[in-house]
Design a protein around this nucleic acid. Structure first.
Ligand SMILES: [Mn+2]
Ligand SMILES: [Mn+2]
Ligand SMILES: [Zn+2]
Ligand SMILES: [Zn+2]
Lengths: 157, 157
DNA sequence: ACGTTAGTGACAATTATTAGCAATAAACAA
DNA sequence: TTGTTTATTGCTAATAATTGTCACTAACGT
C-alpha cells in the first residue's frame, strides 16, 4: 500500500511532512529511531522538516497505530514502523544493536498472568539488555554504530 | 540489617541524606516512587533534602544495587527498593496501581532467547499495561490514588 | 579535635519534548 | 481552476525532568 493510502486509512490528511516521514521510515534500514534521528535523517536527504513537526507527526503516527514508541533505558523515546507484527527487543548495551524476537511461550504466560491478576491488557513491553556476540568476541558489531547511537543512553554516547 | 550497614556494604559513606532516603524507602508503603515523590515524601516528614541530592543519591543507590530504576510509559524514572528478588510489573493505566509478579516460565524463556541470540544478559524489564479489576468494576482502586499519581504519565494526571 | 576529602544545597544549565501562533497548504465545493 | 475553510507547519518560547557547578559542610581516619 502507498504511504498516501496508509495515511488516509489512518485518518490523517496526506501532507508533505507526513508522507516524507512515513516513506523514510519505510525505506530506511534503521528500524529504531528517536525523533531527532528521524529529523536528521530527513535533513541528510535534503528534506527540511521542523523538529517540532517530527515530534507531532510521530505521536500522531503512534496514536494511529502506524508506529510503535519504545522507552528503552536512557529515557528518550524510540520509534519503529509498526509493519511486522508484535515483537520484543534485545538491546546490546555496548553497540546499541537491537535484536527483535517473538516468543510464543512468553506471550502466552503474559496473558495468563494478566488474567489471574484481573487485568485487561492493553499492551506490554519486554526489553532485555546485554552484550551481543560481536562485541564480546571482537569488539565490533555487524551494524553501523554511528547510526544507532541514539539507542544507547546518554552516559554511553 | 541497619540502613547504616547497608550503605557501608554498598561502599557509600553514611551521610544523613543517604540514611534518610534509604530508611524512608524501607519504611514507606509506596513501593514505586519518582525522585520527586521521594523528595516530597521527605519534606512531608520534616526532612529538608535538596532535590538534586535526591536525584544523585537515587542514582548512586541504583549503581550500588540498592534500588531498581524503572522506565514506565510516560518517560520519568521510577525507583523501588531492591529488597525482594527480581519481579516484573503490571501497571493500571487508569489508577496507576502497580502489581508485581514473577513468572518462572517467562524468565526461563528469556534466558533461552538471549542465549540463542548470542547475548549475555545483564537485565531486563517487562512492563504490562492495562486496566485493573477495580477500575473496570466500580471505577475505584484499592489503593490511594493521589500517592500513586507519579506512576501515570503526564497526559493522564 | 583536626585536616582531608567526599557530599550537599542552592541555583544555573541541559535535554527532550510540548505549546503558542502567524503563515501555509490540503481538501473540497463552486 | 479558483476561492474558502480548516488542519498543519515552522518558527520560537516554554516546560519538565534531570544534571552540572561550586562554595560550604560534614564524615572519617589520625
Ligand atoms: Mn522492533
Ligand atoms: Mn516492583
Ligand atoms: Zn511481547
Ligand atoms: Zn522478569
Amino acid at each position: 500500500m502507498s504511504s498516501n493510502a496508509e495515511l488516509k486509512k489512518a485518518g490523517l490528511k496526506t501532507t508533505l511532512p507526513r508522507l516524507k516521514i512515513l516513506s523514510m521510515l519505510e525505506s530506511t534500514n534503521i528500524r529504531h529511531m528517536t525523533a531527532e534521528d528521524v529529523y536528521k535523517s530527513l535533513l541528510d536527504s535534503g528534506e527540511e522538516i521542523g523538529l517540532a513537526t517530527v515530534y507531532r507527526v510521530l505521536t500522531q503516527f503512534e496514536n494511529a497505530g502506524l508506529v510503535i514508541r519504545h522507552n528503552f533505558e536512557g529515557g528518550r523515546s524510540v520509534f519503529e514502523l509498526n509493519d511486522e507484527g508484535h515483537h520484543d527487543h534485545l538491546v546490546c548495551m555496548e553497540c546499541g544493536e537491537v535484536f527483535e524476537f517473538y516468543d510464543k511461550a512468553i506471550e502466552e504466560r503474559q496473558r495468563k498472568v494478566a488474567e489471574e491478576s484481573g487485568f485487561v491488557l492493553d499492551n506490554h513491553s519486554l526489553y532485555m539488555y546485554g552484550v551481543c556476540e560481536g562485541m564480546r568476541n571482537n569488539g565490533k558489531c555487524s551494524i553501523n554504530k554511528k547510526k544507532l547511537s541514539s539507542v544507547l543512553n546518554t552516559s554511553k554516547r
